[in-house]
Design a protein around this nucleic acid. Structure first.
Lengths: 221, 221, 221, 221
DNA sequence: TATGAATGAGCCTTCATTCAT
DNA sequence: TATGAATGAAGGCTCATTCAT
């Protein structure tokens, strides 16, 4: 029953067995990611994914076991990718305000540049987070993100520019909400309010705004 | 194909034909709303909806024409409901800060109390907003919401408590993002960060925080 | 999930709803019985069954829910048919020996005339009797068969022609074994021993022999 | 296609090529026998057989050519094993009644101890004996079994304890039927009649009964 | 001799939708 | 208006078998 081997296809060349197989898996994962992001778990079609792939439908089952197995593997990859981004700010070389701004900008841009990630997360929430539970290492993720924000908060307090008692998870939630919404609710919002949300100009303007919002809250005396 | 009449089943007794028919439609709509919100357009099953309904599958087709027609009707209802909430703040009787706080609180609570609305909007965005386009009157909605916020902003400027130049649509987006995320990303966020997001206490705490964030930004000199 | 309605399709005209539907079900059941008998549960193909049917594959699922559901319905029918045969001997009008002979002959002939029943039972045993468990009323069956044999045994004892203490279930097992084997093991036995087992002559000869075997045992002092 | 050599893997070390290869084949055969016995030809899975084996799926094809080839090899082994048992009675040292009793007991016990053999034969009959035809030497088998019974019958006639004219094949069929059924129809019979058929006590009781039945028939004047 | 990867054909099942009544 | 029966198309998945190494 457990034909799906090593669903963690993170790196393509893991030294082992067949590098070609890893390429096949990576190819499937990329196509699947786009399809799941676009149509959701129920809406995506294995047939369609297979067709866009350089291999066959059978291979999807060989490597990932089931539609759900494939979806899970896609989710895992997506989360492991953003993990790196969010901790890329060199805190010690910057002031607290600069560091927080950089963090917000990076986060904002990541969402902008990876709408498929945003859409996958939306989908997962529609499924009540049923699949993320089994994704290995998904919880280790909080350590790095939260640790990074904690350092920034501490620095800001020491510098006397942030108010006391900011909870890093609250801060992360605030940043995340503002960055996520811009991509997630893009279609309904822009439709209803006749507002461009995808041009570089609009994005740049909103990014600055989000930085302002976050900083204003942290400064608030 | 032309069987779907007046998909707007807003009022139950519209004086016309048969009040019973309207009841049937309302019943179908309520069940369908929950199913679509829970599983998305692709994931929901007409059979299942029909089974939970007090009528038969045939009636769904009679009244709404197709699965998509039903989905569209559900969307329409959902948006027409929130419309009323957001304009319920008696601005003239309150200070700008009080009025904005009230607006944020109402919005926050509405999302909290209507997760199915949040989930429907998520779904619609997954479908690139393909169905909301055809929903009649959806654009009239911006007038009331935005007008209300504009008044509050103007009052705050006059009172000297808000900074100049706040765009009401930006403000609405900010409020909406912060309120929406708390419900939309509830499952993944709480899973990853081990944080309760549904208890009354957690909700109350976050609501205050969102008010703070919004006010801090509007005040910021 | 439970779309399979009234799997008990025993009688074709149950007075109710649609007699046509019952005909459809009966048609499916007959074809399915032959296919399952011939190839087993795993070997039979729903596609093939559907093709031989006057309806479509979809209808099989509509009426029986699944391949297993269809198999179960076939089993049920098969067992309810032999039930009647085995109790058809008018015991009071016959001597014990005559009655027992008649019972054996009827049983023997039934197996001969209904090889598909024999094959279905073989199949069910290959599946460790997994499906017969859920067949309603299958256990009520022992009452009639065993009661009938009990009466014959009692009569034989009273008449002084049977030895004392014959257990009716043992007797039934003996009769059943001798009648069943002739059909069930027909292919391997006739192949290995080059013996005709299907001609009327061979059948008649063996039937007499089986009667002899059973009587000899019951008489044995 | 011609890769399947000497499917008769009876002896492990046939002096030839590699003793290891013979071990591999024997291992595959044992696993395959259990799987085919349990689930039938159609129900057994090559993947599953390979997994339980100490070698790979490829080896199955290397040694046996196909699923059918493997099945045939299994059948052959099964029949060659029972062959030995049935001729193990030392007729000259026993009376006819003792010899026949011993023969029946041995046969009964063999079936009891080798349910997989019984199940394989059932399967083969479900396939209309299609594969047993090609099994080499399967017909030589009748010689030994039938010769042995013939001797016993002759001895019994000479001793005046058996009736005249018993056909050895009829006798074999009778014995076989009674012994076979107890294992083959174990699941359905025990289910329907609520009777234990596998405990040592139940088996012992029935074994004595079968001996009685056979002897009663042979004695019958 | 042995192994992991690959495959085409086909299998069971489901879905939105429609028809006869 | 309402209902049970029916359907074509397609969807997810599995199977025996083979290939490259």
């Amino acid at each position: 029953m457990d034909l799906a081997r090593s669903a963690t296809a993170g790196a393509v060349s893991r030294g082992s067995r067949s590098a070609e197989a890893e390429l096949t898996k990576a190819n499937i994962l990329r196509i699947a990611r786009d399809e799941f992001a676009d149509k959701g778990l129920a809406g995506a079609r294995i047939d369609e994914i297979a067709e866009k792939t350089s291999t066959s439908k059978r291979m999807i089952y060989y490597h990932f076991g089931s539609k759900e197995g494939l979806y899970r593997a896609v989710l895992e990859e997506a989360y492991s990718a953003i993990r790196d981004t969010e901790t890329a700010v060199p805190i010690d070389q910057l002031s607290a305000v600069e560091a927080l701004s950089a963090n917000v900008r990076l986060t904002f841009d990541y969402h902008h540049q990876h709408p498929e990630f945003v859409r996958l997360v939306m989908n997962e929430n529609i499924h009540h987070g049923a699949f993320i539970t089994n994704v290995v290492g998904i919880k280790r993720r909080n350590e790095s993100v939260i640790r990074s924000l904690s350092e920034i908060i501490a620095k800001g307090e020491r510098e006397g520019v942030f108010k006391a008692g900011i909870d890093p998870i609250d801060l992360h939630m605030t940043i995340s909400a503002l960055c996520f919404y811009n991509v997630s609710n893009r279609y309904t919002f822009s439709q209803i309010f006749n507002r461009d949300m995808t041009s570089e100009a609009a994005m740049g303007r909103r990014r600055d705004q989000v930085v302002d919002i976050v900083l204003a809250w942290c400064r608030a005396s």
